[in-house]
Nucleic acid binder design. Structure first.
Length: 478
RNA sequence: GGUCCCUUCGUCUAUCGGUUAGGACACCAGAUUUUCAAUCUGGGAAGAGGGGUUCGACUCCCCUAGGGACUGCCA
């Protein structure tokens, strides 16, 4: 028998993110963590982290670190020290005993072979598998032989999960199996440990992937058998790849670390990920503060969303333009360093910082910023001039640029606006259009690399470097 | 096979019975132009199919089709 979830006795919201440390932090998991974090913040509650490491075979130290690193990068910090599930096995065993005593569970001595046979038979008959030990008396127990403990679920009635995202979902209890809650080695299984831990941690809202929706029914039954108040459940859809299939290796980037490496900013990832499957009217670009103010788990959609890298890049571009120049310069140096493209760190940082106001409008990711956008800034004098530039630098143009050089050497204010005015004035004095000046000057300053408007390029390079490059080009052989 | 979930432009979504079905990304065109971007303006683009309910369905119900999850002594 199931009753609707009891109203929460405690008004304070407690959410948790509970990944198992068997690999990197998946981008889908990151979004789950984000929703938990947002909901907790939105309600003035707490966001907790629990590492589900009860599978000793597959859990690794490196994976634990990857989860911490990923969440840290994303800026999703837990409000309390993370809990390792395995450290709570004693407590889990204790609750298993309690459930056994309450008659809510039973010992099962089936061998793997027997299990296989029974399960196949049940499947063939279209019914749920039930262990024969469910109905055997204590006199049939097999002392000195290891046993698993199974939950003794009701055979009749139905279980209702009033999900915050999926709505009311019902199961007939006869369709729910008696899941193993303790393995024959005494360790607890996931579905049981989760219930005990969520209860003990005071979790009020379980927000997780909808691959757990079926588990919610079984967990719900366990809560009832234990006489515990249930949390509210919210099962959010999984993220799919651009082709609509479940995110997998062939889609490439799955780990949040991949996104950091691709040059996305954490604030952009939060914005994009929040918007994936959730909306607040027509708002597309929003700050953390706005997201927290607007977020409600009930507004999350029920259909799986596909990852769209174009849109991610667009959102990232917005946040790059808003980001601090020194920070972007530092991150760009790091991106360059990963490619082994930094000789003099201090100088590179210095050049990038000065050019950043101009550069950041031109790139959508840090990687783009590092490579095409900033390439002209990082070149060393004297620049190698490409054929196109050489062709533009005919005798007439050289003479003209020589006059420009002389004029700029006397020019005081080296900011974009003033430089732009000065260039136009020069063109006017020369009695020619910018078309007669641009190509040669651009080539001299950028050496054939793509670069911004001329005034911006001059500003980005700085006075000394600009004049030096121009002088270099004019003294080069034709 | 069984149980459960999902289905609005190519993509992310708004709409919560009455709208010319809105926005964003992407795309196309134009503007700008000294390169490449960026930016601005405009444009094309959607309710899976079939039944109901209703004066009126994208919105509610049913069926079908198509996706997906689970069906472990994994989590």
């Amino acid at each position: 028998m199931s009753t609707p979830p009891a109203p929460n006795p405690s008004p304070a919201v407690v959410t948790r993110f509970a990944p198992s440390p068997t690999g990197y932090l998946h981008i889908g998991g990151a979004r789950t963590a984000l929703f938990n974090w947002l909901y907790a913040k939105a309600r003035g509650g707490k966001f907790l982290l629990r590492i589900e490491d009860t599978d000793r075979e597959r859990s690794t130290e490196a994976a634990v670190q990857a989860i911490f690193d990923g969440l840290n990068w994303l800026g999703l910090e837990a409000d309390e020290t993370p809990i390792f599930q395995f450290s709570r096995v004693e407590r889990h065993r204790e609750v298993v005993e309690e459930l056994l005593q309450r008659g809510g569970a039973y010992r099962d001595w089936m061998t793997p072979e027997e299990l296989q046979v029974e399960r196949d038979a049940a499947k063939a008959e279209g019914r749920r598998f039930r262990s024969p030990w469910r109905d055997r008396g204590p006199d049939e127990a097999m002392p000195n032989r290891p046993y698993a403990v199974r939950f003794k679920g009701p055979l009749e009635g139905e279980t209702l999960v009033d999900d915050l995202v999926q709505g009311e979902v019902r199961w007939k209890n006869k369709d729910l199996d008696d899941l193993v809650i303790a393995r024959s080695d005494g360790t607890p299984t996931y579905n049981f440990a989760v219930v005990v831990d969520d209860h003990d941690m005071g979790v009020t809202h379980v927000i997780r992937g909808d691959d757990h929706l079926n588990n919610a029914a079984r967990q719900s039954l366990i809560y009832e058998a234990l006489g515990w108040a249930k949390p509210r459940f919210a099962h959010i859809p999984l993220i799919h790849g651009p082709d609509g299939a479940k995110l997998s290796k062939r889609h490439g980037a799955q780990a949040v670390g991949d996104y950091a490496e691709m040059g996305y900013l954490p604030e952009a990832m939060r914005n994009y990920l929040a918007r994936l499957g959730w909306a607040h009217g027509d708002d597309e670009i929003f700050s953390d503060e706005q997201a927290i103010q607007w977020f409600d788990i009930a507004d999350v959609g029920r259909a799986p969303a596909r990852l769209d890298f174009d849109k991610l890049a667009h959102v990232n571009g917005h946040w790059m333009r808003l980001a601090d120049d020194a920070r972007l310069a530092e991150l760009t140096v790091q991106a360059l360093e990963r490619k082994g493209a930094v000789a003099d760190r201090a100088e590179t940082l210095d050049r990038l910082t000065r050019a950043m106001p101009v550069l950041k409008d031109r790139a959508k990711t840090l990687v783009e910023l590092a490579d095409p956008a900033a390439a002209f800034v990082l070149k060393q004098r004297p620049l190698a001039l490409d054929d196109k530039t050489l062709a533009a630098l005919d005798a007439e143009t050289r003479a003209r640029l020589q006059r420009l050089l002389a004029r700029l050497q006397l020019f005081k204010s080296w900011d974009v606006f003033a430089l732009e005015t000065e260039l136009k004035a020069f063109a006017g004095d020369e009695g020619v259009g910018m078309g007669k000046i641009g190509p040669g000057l651009r080539g001299a300053l950028a050496g054939g690399s793509p670069a911004p408007d001329l005034a911006k390029t001059l500003a980005a390079l700085g006075r000394d470097e600009s004049l030096g490059r121009l002088a270099d080009a004019l003294s080069s052989d034709a």
